[in-house]
Simulated assay, not measured.
Amino acid sequence: MASTEVDTIDTGWVREDPEAPSARFGWSGTAPRTYAIAAFISGLIMFGMLAGNHVGRVEDIWLIVIGVVLIGYAAFKMRPRKNAWKRA
Rank of each mutant, 00 (worst) to 15 (best):
residue 82 K to I: 12
residue 21 P to S: 13
residue 57 R to H: 09
residue 33 R to T: 13
residue 35 Y to N: 13
residue 30 T to G: 11
residue 39 A to E: 04
residue 1 M to E: 07
residue 9 I to P: 05
residue 39 A to N: 07
residue 60 D to T: 14
residue 38 A to C: 05
residue 81 R to M: 06
residue 69 V to Q: 03
residue 53 N to F: 09
residue 21 P to N: 08
residue 5 E to H: 06
residue 64 I to R: 01
residue 70 L to V: 01
residue 48 G to Y: 02
residue 7 D to I: 04
residue 31 A to N: 13
residue 22 S to G: 15
residue 3 S to Q: 04
residue 8 T to K: 07
residue 9 I to Q: 04
residue 75 A to G: 07
residue 88 A to H: 05
residue 86 K to T: 03
residue 31 A to D: 13
residue 85 W to L: 09
residue 25 F to H: 15
residue 25 F to A: 08
residue 51 A to S: 14
residue 23 A to G: 00
residue 8 T to C: 05
residue 13 W to T: 14
residue 59 E to L: 15
residue 39 A to Y: 00
residue 10 D to H: 03
residue 71 I to K: 03
residue 15 R to F: 09
residue 21 P to K: 11
residue 64 I to W: 04
residue 58 V to K: 11
residue 72 G to A: 02
residue 66 I to E: 07
residue 16 E to V: 15
residue 45 I to T: 14
residue 37 I to M: 02
residue 58 V to E: 11
residue 13 W to E: 14
residue 19 E to A: 15
residue 80 P to V: 08
residue 49 M to C: 10
residue 23 A to R: 03
residue 73 Y to K: 02
residue 46 M to C: 15
residue 51 A to F: 14
residue 25 F to I: 12
residue 55 V to W: 11
residue 54 H to K: 09
residue 86 K to N: 10
residue 13 W to Q: 11
residue 37 I to E: 07
residue 4 T to P: 02
residue 80 P to A: 12
residue 5 E to A: 13
residue 20 A to L: 15
residue 67 G to I: 01
residue 24 R to E: 15
residue 1 M to T: 10
residue 71 I to S: 01
residue 68 V to A: 12
residue 32 P to N: 05
residue 80 P to E: 12
residue 77 K to Q: 14
residue 33 R to G: 12
residue 57 R to T: 15
residue 83 N to Y: 13
residue 5 E to F: 08
residue 54 H to D: 13
residue 24 R to I: 10
residue 53 N to M: 07
residue 76 F to W: 14
residue 67 G to C: 03
residue 14 V to K: 09
residue 73 Y to R: 00
residue 58 V to I: 15
residue 29 G to D: 01
residue 58 V to Y: 07
residue 55 V to K: 14
residue 87 R to Y: 06
residue 85 W to S: 07
residue 73 Y to H: 01
residue 34 T to A: 15
residue 79 R to Q: 10
residue 18 P to Y: 02
residue 78 M to Y: 05
residue 15 R to H: 14
residue 69 V to Y: 04
residue 77 K to C: 09
residue 22 S to P: 03
residue 79 R to S: 07
residue 75 A to D: 00
residue 33 R to D: 13
residue 23 A to Y: 00
residue 59 E to H: 15
residue 77 K to F: 04
residue 21 P to D: 13
residue 41 I to P: 00
residue 14 V to W: 08
residue 17 D to Q: 06
residue 16 E to F: 04
residue 29 G to V: 09
residue 3 S to G: 09
residue 29 G to C: 03
residue 8 T to M: 10
residue 82 K to C: 00
residue 67 G to T: 06
residue 85 W to G: 02
residue 3 S to T: 10
residue 23 A to E: 03
residue 73 Y to W: 00
residue 39 A to M: 08
residue 10 D to K: 03
residue 66 I to A: 12
residue 52 G to V: 03
residue 65 V to D: 00
residue 46 M to E: 14
residue 13 W to P: 00
residue 88 A to N: 05
residue 49 M to L: 11
residue 88 A to C: 02
residue 79 R to K: 13
residue 53 N to E: 14
residue 34 T to H: 09
residue 38 A to R: 05
